[in-house]
Amino acid sequence: MTGIELNLTTEFVTDLKPEEPIQVDVEQSTESVIDLLREQKAGAALVNRGGRLAGIFTERDVLRLLAKGADLSVPIEQYMGTSVVYLKRTDVVASAITKMSEGGYRRLPIVDQNGNATALVTTADVLHYLVEHFPETIYNLPPTTANSVQEREGA
């Protein structure tokens, strides 16, 4: 393998330069978590119980709750997703892509051996990694070549 494929299978998920996640406690009110996401312009918060990752609450959950006019005063625990798929620091980029693609996840937390979330990898991180790793491919490109002339004109 060469080029980007080599990177995808040898570089670690930490090379995607994921941002530090927003972390909240299971007992925080749903409204305060939504306000925090809005304020930080973040799409998800990781929800901890006793310092360990217990769930994730995303902007898709916000949509669902606002659409049905749900009570937002209750603890976030009631609305968070609990089956969190996560990554380890030693997972390679390709395995993050596979997990995201096959599970339909847009965000995957990186969790250490103690169950603490240290980072949140997003699909935007993966796209940016691609663009950074093969700039020649991406940057010097016309949007479309649909109107290409296949034969020279004239005699």
């Binding site: 980007i4 494929e5 093969f134």
Partner: peptide
């Protein structure tokens, strides 16, 4: 472009 990988 011979150095580019299959994905590229």
């Amino acid at each position: 472009r011979s150095h580019l990988s299959a994905i590229e």
